[in-house]
Nucleic acid binder design. Structure first.
Lengths: 246, 246
DNA sequence: AACTTAATGTGTTTAATTTACACATTAAAC
DNA sequence: GTTTAATGTGTAAATTAAACACATTAAGTT
């Protein structure tokens, strides 16, 4: 159950009350950040949601968001908010889109900048503070608070597009991983099945994987080889990529 | 020369003075929009710039921007600002990125949402109002006011990426156009040379061009055939596009 | 009228990339 | 020892992209 304790209310709510009282202020647009944190967990793509404690959306799930301070960079605000609400700090956030419909937020005019990231659920411990915080299967996400469904959809599309443009996700796997684990990751993000042989061919051709001559342990089937990602090689090749393709 | 007449100052400047006086207001972030309007003109890619009338950047060129009103949608603000500053109204704007460094604007904390578009210079008359407004060759754009150089660079990259993902630019050409004109457009945007035969092959394969059995007139060489773009066919095929490509 | 100029229109071959597809192997679980 | 559930491997076919040259046309020039 959501614990909508007054004393633990978010900065957003406090500030919004102030905003609403300043009717004639020309500068009455509040700026917020919403973070869409995707998590890879046992071959499933999840997203981190929190219960809304605003009256209008009481009980609904929402993204991790709060107001930007006047004296902090926008990107810094995103990292701060994520840290405050989840304890996560070693996470790379990327800006996606800014949502600015007049009535998107019930408490007043709030324009929100959406950021997203993708992490491994197993590698990050969450500090659950004032509200319920849960990993949800992305496929079952519906009916979020505010316009968060739209923000979520936009970020998921962005993630899917991104993963097709650049190899991604090596921070999500253990340092040593099998090709099956890598393929699971891609299949989870893109929500498609891929041919194992072609997938391996493609990744080996990219030449970013180093065979470390170890095998999986304790799997209930033939163990696979383990690889690690060569970040240096990747950085070098990344620059060359280009091409025209309609 | 720039005419920095007090009475014609932009809403941005007026509002910023108000903002600066309200030191203790928690909500002292101002929100603005900057429009990067690319123009295709005689085989060259241009961008529409205006002289800055702010002291710190007096005389420098800048993007078309102003503050968002509290009671208008973000997208609507972009269209309004473009209309006010240029007279342009039948232009499609697309949001690209939001820039939110603390000190990006000398007059106070202003977070700016960047939008871009691409139009045909010949098809749009500009209403030049308070400031100098000029089409600049994109290749010679340097040293813009504020962080506008960065915004411009980001939008140009976005345009180039966009044009490689979806056929684009049919609103930029005359209704009837030759393949050479189409190729000029792509070469101007991407700043590369393309093989004529392969270019034609690619576009004909896409099957969006209709041969209208007319020829160019009054050209000082063998006249080319004219085509029109089949928007219906395009809309139908667009949905199918997908694919994994690292 | 003949010549020059500057562009159009056209096809093929080669290389590269992507897709489809099947079977023997291995380690653990029972 | 048998079953289970996965790994590892190669090739052929189809598609897509890239490289490349010459005859044609209309206007402009002399």
């Amino acid at each position: 159950m959501p614990n909508s304790d007054q004393s633990l209310q978010s900065a957003a709510q406090k500030s919004l009350r102030i905003i609403q009282s300043e009717v004639e202020n020309i500068n009455k647009i509040a700026l917020s950040v919403d973070c869409v944190i995707f998590g890879f967990d046992e071959s499933k793509l999840k997203v981190l949601l929190i219960r809304s404690d605003l009256k209008n959306y009481h009980g609904k799930w929402s993204l991790l968001g709060d107001l930007v301070f006047p004296n902090e960079d926008l990107d810094a605000a995103a990292y701060r908010i994520l840290k405050q609400r989840t304890g996560l700090s070693d996470v790379y956030l990327e800006q996606v889109h800014t949502f600015g419909k007049i009535n998107r937020h019930p408490a007043g005019r709030v324009v929100s900048v959406a950021y997203y990231s993708l992490i491994n659920v197993q590698h990050h411990k969450l500090n659950i503070l004032e509200n319920e915080l849960h990993w949800h299967d992305v496929k079952s996400v519906t009916d979020l608070a505010f316009d968060h469904q739209q923000i979520f959809d936009t970020c998921l599309q962005q993630l899917q597009k991104r993963v097709q443009e650049h190899p991604l996700g090596f921070n999500l796997l253990p340092r040593k991983f099998s090709l099956r684990e890598l393929q699971n990751l891609y299949e989870a993000i893109l929500d498609i099945k891929m041919d194992r042989r072609n997938f391996r061919k493609k990744f080996f051709a990219m030449d970013f994987l180093t065979d470390i001559n170890e095998m999986e342990q304790d799997v209930a089937h033939r163990p696979g080889k383990l690889y690690k990602f060569d970040f240096d090689k990747y950085e070098k090749k990344k620059k060359k990529m280009s091409g025209i393709d309609f």
